[in-house]
């Protein structure tokens, strides 16, 4: 069953075509990796799924709800889809526990105690229970990103979107974040991940999407993508990032 469906998505900024006729899907429990050169529209694409980026035409359906329909309750939809950003975007004025509790209390109307308890369990899961009382500015980038993942998971999402979750990290911190994501994938979470980490893609992706200049150039099973990419642009891209 398809959890996320994108049908013929187009979007322009003025004269610039950011997305042009993009169609794809993510099935329940599937991990789809989106890659491509910078400026190819992959971050924009993933942000259209929870309505953070409006689209000009096409349809996006998440768990049966059409995202761009005027009657759609976007906050409700977003509360069910977790998102992790390149720059973490933790709330700097709240400590880690409060970061995890805020939306649980304000959006899901959980009691403060229940939200704190849930938050602590998730912090434990990402290995950061000892840092619950610290503020985001007191954690390393890798730690902040793990908190951001825990914050999204606290909402019990039906799917998780990752927008270049390791691009802003120092190299030695990338793996601690990827480890959490691998574990999440193995637990059966539905995930769409914009990333350049091809090792991650090889390990857990079901499908890989390659984008260039706003188009989905290639949408293939992982083994096909890495084994014999059909498009020349994907071949070039792979040869550039896989040489070392």
């Amino acid at each position: 069953m398809s959890m996320i469906t994108l049908r013929d998505i187009s979007k322009t900024y003025g004269d610039f075509q950011v997305l042009s006729h993009c169609s794809t899907w993510v099935s329940k429990g599937e991990v789809v990796v989106v890659c491509g050169p910078s400026g190819s529209g992959k971050s924009t694409l993933i942000k259209t799924i929870n309505g953070l980026e409006p689209i000009d035409s096409g349809d996006i359906i998440v768990d049966g709800t059409t995202v761009s329909a005027p009657t759609t309750n976007l906050p409700l939809l977003r509360s069910r889809v977790g998102m992790v950003f390149q720059h973490f975007e933790l709330f700097p004025h709240l400590n880690i526990r409060e970061n995890l509790a805020l939306a649980q209390v304000k959006v899901l109307k959980r009691s403060k105690d229940a939200a704190m308890e849930k938050g602590m369990a998730l912090l434990d899961r990402v290995g950061l229970a000892a840092h619950a009382e610290k503020f985001p500015g007191q954690l390393s980038g890798g730690q902040q990103q793990r908190v951001a993942i825990a914050r999204a998971l606290a909402m019990d999402p039906i799917a998780m979107l990752f927008d270049e979750p390791t691009s802003a990290l120092d190299p030695e911190m990338i793996n601690e974040v990827l480890d959490v994501m691998v574990e999440l994938a193995r637990d059966g979470m539905t995930m769409m991940v914009v990333t350049h980490e091809m090792g991650f893609a090889r390990k857990v992706a079901n499908r890989v999407i390659f984008m260039d200049r706003g188009e989905i150039v290639e949408d293939a099973d992982k083994d096909d993508f890495f084994g014999k990419p059909r498009s020349e642009r994907a071949q070039q891209f792979l040869s550039k990032i896989l040489v070392h």
Binding site: R78, F85, L90, F91, L102, A103
Partner: peptide, 27 residues
């Protein structure tokens, strides 16, 4: 504030007024 802060608030399901109240204005 970075544009991402507003997005992060909204991505969690906070409405725009809630995002201002709990995320943007306090900082």
């Amino acid at each position: 504030l970075s544009r991402g802060q507003k997005m992060a608030g909204q991505a969690l399901g906070l409405t725009l007024p809630q995002t201002y109240r709990y995320v943007l204005l306090p900082v």
